[in-house]
Design a protein around this nucleic acid. Structure first.
Ligand code: FES
Ligand code: FES
Lengths: 148, 148
DNA sequence: TATAACTAGGACCATTTTAGTACTATTTAA
DNA sequence: TTAAATAGTACTAAAATGGTCCTAGTTATA
């Protein structure tokens, strides 16, 4: 139940970029600002480009910039870029491919849980992350009620 | 963003127990029913006892039974038993211990995301898992709204 | 046109984590 | 007394992760 370090890095890096998206940011520059080793920063940036979260500009004076506004980049998208699709269990990841246990009928329920977690992460954007922390105003209506 | 296999096993095993909690269940018995290797089943069961999700009865005719009713055993508790506290990021896990990146001020926001995911998992119980799947009736109000 | 400053895309290895197994000790019903 | 159970721990093999490095391609600009 942990995000990988790379995903953590990604959010930090993206936050920096989001705060000033008017110009492009180079990998070395980002490494200096964040304190993360440059090769690692590059790795993360490349993955984010591949997932179309960032756009790259090659050549001298090149660098990276957001592919869309921070409001449209969800945490779920970032996780997806670094770790692949959000799927808590094997069953949810590849339908019908799970033969872990006989007599298991909870697959469908896992799907629901998955969707809930996914929704939660989908609804938080980069724009939210760079804001100062505020206490919640609305309370989350939990999934349990879905079942009762 | 995956649960470990052991956690997956745990939910399957717990589901079986939950469906008939009047008698105790032995590790070998559970292994036969679920098709999971017996030593692995034992490992999972021991962890669940340690986390007070299950109660064990030692000696001949011993076995395991739920520590409380299925409605009171959340998925979050199960994950916690197998994988430790739910903390998506290093920052959330150990406060002030994260020195991954300089100039990072999103820690507090991660905390909120964490809580949201935790809430979602806390609100799904073992009782829900063993029910036939139903489409959601109420919609989750996502965290994003917390920030806007 | 040459150069320097960039990114693209792999390949690679060390480390850590995970999964699974095994062993010994303890408990208890029959 | 014995057999059927769990408790606890240690161990190994396999997989995932983190991190680095190398080569190739692109482009502004001196
Ligand atoms: S855990 Fe895979 S089918 Fe239920
Ligand atoms: S990621 Fe650790 S302090 Fe921000």
């Amino acid at each position: 139940m942990r995000l990988s370090k790379l995903t953590d890095y990604a959010t930090v890096i993206l936050s920096v970029i989001a705060k000033n998206n008017s110009c492009v940011h180079s990998a070395v520059g980002m490494a200096e600002v964040t304190g993360i080793a440059q090769p690692t920063v590059s790795k993360v940036l490349k993955l984010l480009v591949k997932a179309k979260v960032l756009i790259s500009v090659r050549g001298a004076k090149g660098g990276y910039r957001l592919a869309r506004s921070p409001e449209k980049i969800s945490v779920a998208a970032v996780i997806n870029a670094l770790e692949g699709p959000i799927a808590l269990t094997e069953c949810s990841a590849s339908h019908h491919a799970c033969e872990q246990a006989r007599g298991c009928e909870i697959q469908g329920n896992w799907d629901l849980i998955n969707k809930t977690v996914h929704n939660a992460l989908e609804s938080v954007t980069l724009a939210d992350l760079i804001l100062p922390v505020r206490p919640p105003r609305e309370i989350n209506i939990p999934v349990a009620s879905l079942y009762r």
